[in-house]
Amino acid sequence: MNIQPSASFDAIESQLDRTKTPKLPGGETENETKEAFTKFVGETMFGSMLSSMRKTVGKPAYFHGGRTEEVFQKQLDQLIVEDLTESSASTIADPMFDLFQMNRRP
């Protein structure tokens, strides 16, 4: 937001009002709730999907790292899920969040 020094008080106030987001009953903003919703939906869905995919693939005959690979594979999977959530979970979570919000509004 770029506020000009010569701008009137009413113009500055209207700019600030546009930047505010409404508070929900729990005290958090709608954006915070939406981010938490997106993170939960994305990590749950992508985490379950990646876990199921890993179960269908057996261990390779060669170049398997044993227990160490299994431990680090889980950490890598967690990073993959976080990246997938950040990049594409909103396409699924946004419509779900809108439906969730419709039920909460009077």
Rank of each mutant, 00 (worst) to 15 (best):
D83E: 13
F40S: 14
T91L: 06
L50W: 03
L24E: 07
E82W: 06
R54L: 12
T91A: 07
E43G: 06
R54I: 10
H64Q: 06
A36G: 14
R67E: 09
M102C: 13
F100I: 09
G42C: 05
V71Y: 08
M45Y: 03
E28L: 14
F100V: 10
M96Q: 02
T85L: 11
P106V: 13
N2L: 14
E86Q: 14
Q4H: 10
K59T: 03
E32K: 03
S8P: 04
V57W: 00
P22T: 15
M102R: 15
Q15M: 07
P95C: 11
T19E: 15
T68C: 05
S8H: 10
H64I: 00
A89Q: 00
E32R: 04
E35P: 00
R54M: 12
S14K: 07
L84S: 07
T56N: 12
F46E: 00
M102Q: 15
T44S: 15
L76D: 01
E32Y: 05
P22N: 12
K55W: 09
D98Y: 03
T68V: 07
N2A: 14
S52E: 10
I3Y: 11
E35R: 00
V41Y: 03
E69Y: 00
P25M: 12
D10E: 13
G66P: 01
M102I: 14
K55D: 12
I12M: 12
F9M: 01
F100D: 10
M49K: 11
R104D: 07
P60N: 08
R18Q: 08
F97M: 14
F72A: 04
R104V: 04
E70Q: 06
S8M: 08
E30T: 07
I12P: 10
Q75F: 09
A36P: 13
F9K: 00
V71T: 11
F72V: 06
D77P: 00
L76A: 02
K20C: 13
Y62H: 07
F72W: 05
F40H: 15
E43R: 06
V57L: 05
M96E: 05
S87Y: 10
V81F: 06
Q101M: 02
T68W: 02
G26F: 06
T21P: 03
E82V: 13
S6W: 09
V41D: 06
E70H: 04
T29M: 06
E69G: 03
G42Q: 04
T19V: 14
S48H: 11
A11P: 02
P95M: 11
F100E: 09
Q4I: 06
F40D: 12
T29V: 08
Q101R: 01
I80N: 05
P95F: 10
N103V: 09
F40C: 14
E30W: 10
F9V: 01
L84M: 11
T68L: 04
P25Q: 12
V71A: 09
F72S: 01
H64V: 04
M53N: 07
I92C: 02
T19A: 15
P22L: 11
R104Q: 12
I80V: 02
E70I: 04
S6M: 08
K20H: 13
V41F: 07
L79M: 11
I92H: 04
E30L: 09
A61C: 07
P5N: 05
G27N: 13
K59P: 04
T38A: 10
M53E: 05
D77E: 04
